[in-house]
Nucleic acid binder design. Sequence first.
DNA 1: CGATGTCATGCGCCGACTGCTTGTGGTCGA
DNA 2: TCGACCACAAGCAGTCGGCGCATGACATCG
Lengths: 218, 218
Amino acid sequence: MRRLLVVEDDTDLREMVSETLADEGYHVDQAPDGQRGLHLGLTRPYDVLVIDRRLPALDGLDLITRLRARAVAARALMLTALGTVDDRIAGLDAGADDYLAKPFDLDELSARIRALCRRTADATEALRVGAGHLDLAARDAVLADGTRVSLSAREFELLRVLAARPGAVHPRAALRSRVFDEAAAASIVDTYVYYLRRKLGRTVVQTVHGLGYRLGAL
Amino acid sequence: MRRLLVVEDDTDLREMVSETLADEGYHVDQAPDGQRGLHLGLTRPYDVLVIDRRLPALDGLDLITRLRARAVAARALMLTALGTVDDRIAGLDAGADDYLAKPFDLDELSARIRALCRRTADATEALRVGAGHLDLAARDAVLADGTRVSLSAREFELLRVLAARPGAVHPRAALRSRVFDEAAAASIVDTYVYYLRRKLGRTVVQTVHGLGYRLGAL
DNA sequence: CGATGTCATGCGCCGACTGCTTGTGGTCGA
DNA sequence: TCGACCACAAGCAGTCGGCGCATGACATCG
């Protein structure tokens, strides 16, 4: 599922856009100002960012510039009430991939997002877990603050199985059979949970006494 | 140098656009109708195609559709006198990456082409990797500090495959099948990774134990 | 036409890391 | 309070990867 971020201070407009896009099958996150947009954009993997030009806390242009400076590769579509050519040029040269003037047609926005999505085919394939996510391509975990943690093959596999259903309790036996050989020792899962906790923090994998383990937030 | 193709039947407009873009440093080819545009688009490597919607011989929409069917990856910017939302949506869904209504501002066209060019790093000219890049024409790597490192054909090919998705883990088998003969020895990839590290520094290619290699920053 | 150098490839040893086991002490729950 | 369950540490063996070296093909140049 494609992941979008809508950064727009007008609540009505933001929610209307978000709902429309969500109805079309996108996962949509929202941010009401530039600062929160920056934080989400840096810490979560998106395919397309829809960014208003005029934003409180951090201007849309600055937002894109700062995201690009941190090597965020997501496509950016800028919305604006400022319709002049120079505004559009400034937006595009700041790193936006497309520029749409308000008032705009929702169907056109949707079509332009489809066009941008076509180009991110091999981009970030990721599994979200709370505020962090698993980068399936790079095979490492990304924490809420953006820190990347490299995991060994088994560690990553175990975490991925847990992340398939975050919050659910996964019995030891299920984890052992999915991640390790059936013949492995009974305590193998414990040990790898220990490794994960050592790398990702104490609270990431929670013990449910007598039942198994459960994934908390990354 | 970026390569553009302008497909437009209005001679005056085509030449004006072409000259303006040529002045900005692009290599620009021209085609006066869809058929000739199709032929050029299929046989030569372009970064961006500027295509009029209404064309003799072959309609702009059909042109894009046929190019896409033949896996031409160049970005397409569609020009049109038809300004309705439905036209724009039809163009975008046919495979265009951007859509600009006539009359348009030449500076905006130029800015939109710049935006499209940013995204075609992997097309023809140079592949950006972190602060450095690959010079596809000279077949050597340029480091962050500007140092040029000349690579042998195999070394360069291996680096290029890795650079297609920097940060992602590339399994050995995938690298061997893409860069070397299938029949090559199992350790051939290791050896060439060793060569790359020797020339570019230890950190450029990272090992992911049991899985493959990953490209760091140049 | 021979000499020289570069490139592609194969082989093999050694070191490093991973995966897994085992054991001990601590914690939980009834 | 007791038994079961769990956390953690350390160690071991096997595999994987790093790297040097040897060989042969090919191009280049004297």
